[in-house]
Amino acid sequence: MRLFLCVLLMVGSFSMASAEEIPEDPLGSIQWDDMVRAYLSEHKVVFDDRVKVVAPEFAEDSMNVPVSVDASELTGIKEIFLFAEFNPIPKILKFYPEASKAAFSFRFKIQQASPVRAAVLTNDNIWHVGGVWIDAAGGGCTRASDDRLAGDWADHLGEIYAAVWDTGTVRRTKISISHPMDTGLVAGIPSFYIEEIQLTDDAGKLLARIEPYEPVQENPVFTLDLGKNGSINIEAIDNNANEFSARIVR
């Protein structure tokens, strides 16, 4: 047994030599190196405590796992990329903070226990990574959404709900868009999900941009911290080219 382990370790160290720039994963996931190669290989990757990812240890509802990310201690952020490597579709969402605080919350579907990670790309072309393990009973990505089962999703498609709270320096903003967010992994239901959400002010200036992928929850709710003044224009488009828009008047 010990000999076998030694051989394993030797093989492991040889294969590491070709990818020595990949830092050792503090979460100990066997998929970590593959994730770096698939999504982060163009830039240097570091683990960074300033990227705070908060999620419950256990996914009580695998269709609705709450995740909060706060990378606001970093400056010069280009994008924040969320992924869960043991999901059949690892990419969850990309967030471009633009003029808003680099902190947001949403919920996603988990298929089995997995780390959920935020990789934050800064102007100096470094990926800063933080993450946590989430345990799960599973099945979130291969179950039909509730509104699919109820059959009434089309009656509400693209309805946008929102609210704004002034909380000192930022405006806490919640935006929800009615959409089944189908993963394409349920037999007979092709993937159908919101691909982009843009938030702009009345001068057309970008406040924040979100690119969701299939694992984002059905009828997603995004909690954001936007800048202080003015109205917010919301424009969203899904992968079937349906466009939805609304305006929060202030």
Binding site: E159, I160, K174
Partner: peptide, 24 residues
């Protein structure tokens, strides 16, 4: 502590929805 977390998942989405206004 763990039951509070579970209850938030069970009950919060419905309560949260009541605070949002339909825009379109």
């Amino acid at each position: 502590k763990s039951e509070l977390n579970r209850s938030v998942v069970h009950l919060y989405p419905g309560i949260e929805k009541k605070t949002l206004h339909k825009l379109n």
